[in-house]
Protein backbone atom coordinates (compact mmCIF):
# COMPACT_ATOMS: atom_id res chain seq x y z
CA UNK A 1 0.00 0.00 0.00
CA UNK A 2 2.86 2.36 0.77
CA UNK A 3 4.24 1.67 -2.70
CA UNK A 4 0.89 2.64 -4.25
CA UNK A 5 0.82 5.74 -2.13
CA UNK A 6 4.34 6.73 -3.12
CA UNK A 7 3.37 6.26 -6.75
CA UNK A 8 0.37 8.57 -6.21
CA UNK A 9 2.61 11.21 -4.65
CA UNK A 10 5.09 10.81 -7.51
CA UNK A 11 2.35 11.35 -10.11
CA UNK A 12 1.14 14.39 -8.17
CA UNK A 13 4.65 15.85 -8.21
CA UNK A 14 4.94 15.06 -11.92
CA UNK A 15 1.68 16.96 -12.52
CA UNK A 16 2.96 19.93 -10.57
CA UNK A 17 6.18 19.61 -12.58
CA UNK A 18 4.19 20.11 -15.79
CA UNK A 19 3.17 23.50 -14.44
CA UNK A 20 6.78 24.20 -13.52
CA UNK A 21 8.10 23.74 -17.04
CA UNK A 22 5.18 25.67 -18.58
CA UNK A 23 3.85 23.00 -20.90
CA UNK A 24 1.60 24.20 -23.73
CA UNK A 25 -2.02 24.34 -22.41
CA UNK A 26 -3.57 21.80 -24.79
CA UNK A 27 -0.81 19.24 -24.27
CA UNK A 28 -0.85 19.94 -20.55
CA UNK A 29 -4.60 19.40 -20.31
CA UNK A 30 -4.31 16.06 -22.11
CA UNK A 31 -1.42 14.90 -19.92
CA UNK A 32 -3.10 16.07 -16.72
CA UNK A 33 -6.34 14.27 -17.52
CA UNK A 34 -4.43 11.10 -18.33
CA UNK A 35 -2.38 11.26 -15.13
CA UNK A 36 -5.47 12.09 -13.05
CA UNK A 37 -7.37 9.17 -14.49
CA UNK A 38 -4.40 6.98 -13.61
CA UNK A 39 -4.43 8.29 -10.05
CA UNK A 40 -8.19 7.77 -9.74
CA UNK A 41 -7.80 4.24 -11.06
CA UNK A 42 -5.01 3.50 -8.56
CA UNK A 43 -7.09 4.79 -5.66
CA UNK A 44 -10.16 2.86 -6.80
CA UNK A 45 -8.24 -0.34 -7.50
CA UNK A 46 -6.13 -0.52 -4.34
CA UNK A 47 -7.63 1.81 -1.72
CA UNK A 48 -11.28 1.22 -2.58
CA UNK A 49 -10.59 -2.52 -2.88
CA UNK A 50 -11.84 -3.01 -6.40
CA UNK A 51 -8.91 -5.41 -6.75
CA UNK A 52 -10.40 -7.86 -4.26
CA UNK A 53 -14.13 -7.17 -4.01
CA UNK A 54 -16.25 -5.61 -6.71
CA UNK A 55 -19.86 -4.55 -6.12
CA UNK A 56 -22.35 -6.16 -8.47
CA UNK A 57 -22.75 -4.72 -11.96
CA UNK A 58 -20.00 -2.13 -11.37
CA UNK A 59 -18.91 -2.15 -15.04
CA UNK A 60 -22.48 -1.31 -16.12
CA UNK A 61 -22.74 1.50 -13.58
CA UNK A 62 -19.32 2.87 -14.51
CA UNK A 63 -20.27 2.73 -18.18
CA UNK A 64 -23.43 4.73 -17.39
CA UNK A 65 -21.41 7.28 -15.45
CA UNK A 66 -18.89 7.74 -18.25
CA UNK A 67 -21.69 7.89 -20.82
CA UNK A 68 -23.39 10.66 -18.81
CA UNK A 69 -20.16 12.64 -18.53
CA UNK A 70 -19.56 12.13 -22.25
CA UNK A 71 -23.05 13.40 -22.98
CA UNK A 72 -22.56 16.43 -20.78
CA UNK A 73 -19.43 17.24 -22.75
CA UNK A 74 -21.78 17.79 -25.70
CA UNK A 75 -22.53 21.09 -23.96
CA UNK A 76 -19.00 22.37 -24.69
CA UNK A 77 -19.60 23.39 -28.33
CA UNK A 78 -22.25 25.79 -27.02
CA UNK A 79 -19.45 27.51 -25.13
CA UNK A 80 -17.41 27.90 -28.31
CA UNK A 81 -20.48 29.11 -30.21
CA UNK A 82 -20.70 31.96 -27.74
CA UNK A 83 -17.66 33.53 -29.42
CA UNK A 84 -19.35 33.80 -32.78
CA UNK A 85 -22.61 34.98 -31.23
CA UNK A 86 -21.10 38.01 -29.60
Amino acid sequence: MIAVWLLLVAITLAEAGLAWVHTAPALMLALLLLLSLAKAALIAWYFMHLKSARPKHLPAFLFTLFACVGLLLAILPEGIRAWSMR
Partner: peptide, 26 residues
Protein backbone atom coordinates in the same frame (compact mmCIF):
# COMPACT_ATOMS: atom_id res chain seq x y z
CA UNK B 1 -15.13 -0.07 4.81
CA UNK B 2 -18.10 2.04 3.70
CA UNK B 3 -16.63 5.08 5.44
CA UNK B 4 -13.36 4.35 3.67
CA UNK B 5 -15.10 4.29 0.30
CA UNK B 6 -16.53 7.74 0.97
CA UNK B 7 -13.19 9.14 2.10
CA UNK B 8 -11.27 7.77 -0.88
CA UNK B 9 -13.97 9.14 -3.16
CA UNK B 10 -13.41 12.63 -1.75
CA UNK B 11 -9.73 12.07 -2.51
CA UNK B 12 -10.47 10.97 -6.08
CA UNK B 13 -12.49 14.13 -6.69
CA UNK B 14 -9.57 16.27 -5.54
CA UNK B 15 -7.34 14.39 -7.99
CA UNK B 16 -9.35 16.11 -10.73
CA UNK B 17 -9.92 19.44 -9.00
CA UNK B 18 -6.21 19.98 -8.34
CA UNK B 19 -5.01 19.73 -11.96
CA UNK B 20 -8.04 21.36 -13.61
CA UNK B 21 -8.60 24.25 -11.21
CA UNK B 22 -5.03 24.92 -10.05
CA UNK B 23 -2.51 23.57 -12.55
CA UNK B 24 -4.45 24.74 -15.60
CA UNK B 25 -4.49 28.24 -14.10
CA UNK B 26 -0.78 28.58 -13.41
Amino acid sequence: ETGGLYWHFVDVVWMFVFPLVYLMAV
